[in-house]
């Protein structure tokens, strides 16, 4: 299962990480080297083993349907890169590039 530069590119896209074209092969080599050590696991027979799903086995503790939520000591405007009228602002999504600004 050797990882190629193209695989790295695909994974980087999934992870929303810009990767230098020139570094793809080096990264692929690194991942291959690490994943090579993982092949060890193939030696273990896990046919009848239920994978561990977290370690708290007793089931989930539930919360009553009331607040308050944990408070914010300062408002989002204090840490957000860009806010307007209480909204977080991001560059317009490519799929909505055509939308025009609503005229009041």
């Amino acid at each position: 299962m050797a990882v190629t530069g193209q695989d790295v590119l695909k994974v980087a896209k999934l992870a929303s990480l810009a990767v230098d074209e020139g570094k793809l092969d080096a990264l692929a080599r690194e991942l291959n080297s690490i994943l090579g050590h993982m092949e060890e696991l193939g030696k273990v027979n896990t046919e009848r083993i239920l994978p561990a799903e977290g370690l708290s086995s007793g089931g989930q503790r539930l919360r009553a349907d009331h607040g308050p939520a944990d408070a914010l000591a300062h408002a989002p405007a204090d840490f957000a890169p860009e806010m307007r009228d209480g909204f977080f602002i991001v560059p317009r999504l490519a799929t909505h590039e055509g939308s025009s600004e609503r005229t009041p």
């Binding site: 307007r84 909204f87 602002i89 317009r92 939308s99 600004e101 609503r102």
Partner: peptide, 15 residues
Amino acid sequence: KSVHDRYAGATAIDL
């Protein structure tokens, strides 16, 4: 909620 038609070139996010 993503609001696409409120600001020019921007998407506004309300969580």
